[in-house]
Design a binder for these strands. Sequence first.
DNA 1: AAGATAATACCCCTCATTACGGTATATACC
DNA 2: GGTATATACCGTAATGAGGGGTATTATCTT
Lengths: 210, 210
Amino acid sequence: MALPFKKRVLIVEDDQEIRNSFSLIVNSSQKFMVINAYGNCEDAIDNINRDKPEIILMDIELPGMNGIQGTKIIKEKSPQSEIIMVTVYEDSELVFEALKAGASGYITKSANYMELLSALEEIVKGGAPMSSRIARMVIDNYHVNPNSPLTKRETEILQLISEGKTYTQISEELFISKETAKTHIKNIYSKLQVNSKSEAIAKANLEKLI
Amino acid sequence: MALPFKKRVLIVEDDQEIRNSFSLIVNSSQKFMVINAYGNCEDAIDNINRDKPEIILMDIELPGMNGIQGTKIIKEKSPQSEIIMVTVYEDSELVFEALKAGASGYITKSANYMELLSALEEIVKGGAPMSSRIARMVIDNYHVNPNSPLTKRETEILQLISEGKTYTQISEELFISKETAKTHIKNIYSKLQVNSKSEAIAKANLEKLI
DNA sequence: AAGATAATACCCCTCATTACGGTATATACC
DNA sequence: GGTATATACCGTAATGAGGGGTATTATCTT
């Protein structure tokens, strides 16, 4: 018989052992039940509207479509499904790609009974379960470089550039002449070794100058 | 006598009651000690090199300089000090401003004994303590909008624009003519209702299109 | 206290790139 | 057969980039 109050969990994981052990853990909880477990994204996507999972435990490395691409597609077809990435890697690029794709949590495969269940609980609470390292990675990614080569004024102008403002708009906003704005921008370009607004924005984001 | 193995905690908080209660909690732990407590950022900054705090509990609303501005300055003068924001608000803009300024954690003033100490422990472990809501806010901020008005190709080109590429570079990278790149960009501008590359980048970031 | 340095602010001119207006074809998908 | 997408071209006008200068503060340094 269906237990309507248990949260519906879907597992996408190609390693059968892990799939089984995760299933056992999830089903052992009063609050969660595994409604299905697939070895690849394609099957999960095909059945997403029937399975209607509230939470998906998604491996990244999968045969065929990888878990990040799969996350994107599932989030399009079923936005209310919350996806927790489950992976061996805590590699920086993969983490951010997964988050961009729509993941709301990120735990490692080494997660034990407690860690797995508390990640599920955290998702239900409206949180975002992450390991310490991932949390730190994510937070550090927001930090602005305090040792910018740019002056305060230049940083201010770079900020306005990143907001899409034209030379004229910048000069009006800062009560300076257009020519002064140009001088600042020339200096910014020279310091950042770029030669266009969009390149300056790219570099600024890369080096966290704004 | 000094206890060298206790982590040095500094408190910056203008409400004396909270200051005292936080001090009591921190000092009650074997692992932490309050080395000083100030009612404003200015005093904290002046003494930062003497205090050498490993962890700072920083209020946001303060008389004089606010905690976000203070965080920036402290991070410049003492980059190794880890700063945890302590505030009544979980307002989205403040959170991101604080993180950009250099905060590595974000807890609310309603934090109890346990929550406060585990936030400190989390920092020591190299993590980033956050409430569920903040964690979610931070993670959601990475999510790319799956309902972009742009086509796949347009998104691809917008991505290249955001990397600072010129029309010519884009056309070379995608093996299309410069004119085709221009057409795509025109269409992007029309869909996003912008009229420059940098404005397109700004809108793309705002609406999480890339 | 003099001198150097960095940041700020302003002006002119030239050339390349970008923006904006059209038009058009092939393809694929309903 | 209509719609959406990706491709490609042309011409003009506007904007941005890069070079050359000059001047005034404020701050650091000797």
